[in-house]
């Protein structure tokens, strides 16, 4: 069977996509969430991004998206989200990174905590 002429390109493209970190971003349409999205969009050569407005939606989307990393960025933490995040971690072995506006701390579940994290800190945690 002959291959289409552009098969090499598609294989290369597929390989690139496979190599990207699959990032599931849980956030709102607020300044914080949109600003973060804007920063991550500058890294699209390294990350593939999917968004969800809340953890429940993230759980559904993760079944098809299969994230490597889950970013939970909100103004404030919601205690009811904690159990859902744990479930998400156990299902997909995804690294969960948490940051809120109320506490300027990047928490990489559950081992690392970085106060006053920079964009480099965030990207290091995402790409690790």
């Amino acid at each position: 069977m002959s291959l289409p002429l552009d098969c090499g390109y598609h294989l290369w493209k597929r390989q690139i996509t496979v190599n990207k970190r699959r990032l599931l971003l849980i956030t709102t349409r607020s300044l914080f969430g949109t600003g973060l999205m804007s920063l991550l969009e500058q890294q699209t050569d390294r990350v593939a991004i999917e968004t969800a407005a809340d953890v429940r939606t993230a759980l559904q989307k993760s079944q098809t998206f299969q994230p490597d990393v889950v970013l939970y960025f909100r103004e404030t933490s919601r205690p009811e989200d904690e159990a859902l995040l744990q479930e998400l971690m156990s299902r997909h072995r995804a690294r969960v990174i948490h940051c809120t506006l109320e506490a300027d701390r990047l928490t990489i579940y559950d081992q690392t905590s970085i106060n006053h994290a920079t964009v480099d800190d965030l990207m290091t945690a995402v790409l690790k």
Binding site: L31, F32, T34, G35, S38, L39, F73, D104, H116, V119
Partner: peptide, 16 residues
């Protein structure tokens, strides 16, 4: 703003 990730995100948004 002292919250670096918020500030950087905002700067990125406004820059567009």
């Amino acid at each position: 703003d002292d919250h670096t990730l918020f500030r950087k995100g905002l700067v990125s948004l406004l820059g567009q």
